[in-house]
């Protein structure tokens, strides 16, 4: 059993920072897209080293949305 965690921070202006942990490969981006598709325009995205590792390794991604 593996735990998947997504931590989302919404600041007082509605700007969002999201970080995934334990979601493998491209799946983490899919998960974030599902959750944040209506939450504003993407400002930046940083893929960590883990993102490029194979799917058995935890992936840690950060995605940050631009505030509206």
């Amino acid at each position: 059993m593996a735990e998947q965690t997504i931590t989302i921070e919404i600041d007082e202006n509605g700007k969002i920072k999201a970080e995934t942990e334990g979601i493998k490969g491209e799946m983490c981006l899919d998960e974030l897209q599902k959750l944040l598709e209506d939450s504003g325009d993407l400002q930046s995205m940083n893929k960590t080293d883990e993102f490029y590792q194979n799917q058995t390794i935890n992936v840690n991604n950060k995605i940050q949305n631009k505030k509206l």
Partner: peptide, 28 residues
């Protein structure tokens, strides 16, 4: 709402005027 639909459990906190949502789910 979307997190619930995708099977996440949700923890909500308020940290420095920011809302922090911690979404977790287990996969097998």
């Amino acid at each position: 709402q979307k997190a619930k639909e995708q099977g996440y459990s949700i923890q909500e906190k308020k940290v420095n005027n920011k809302v922090k949502l911690v979404l977790t789910r287990n996969t097998y």
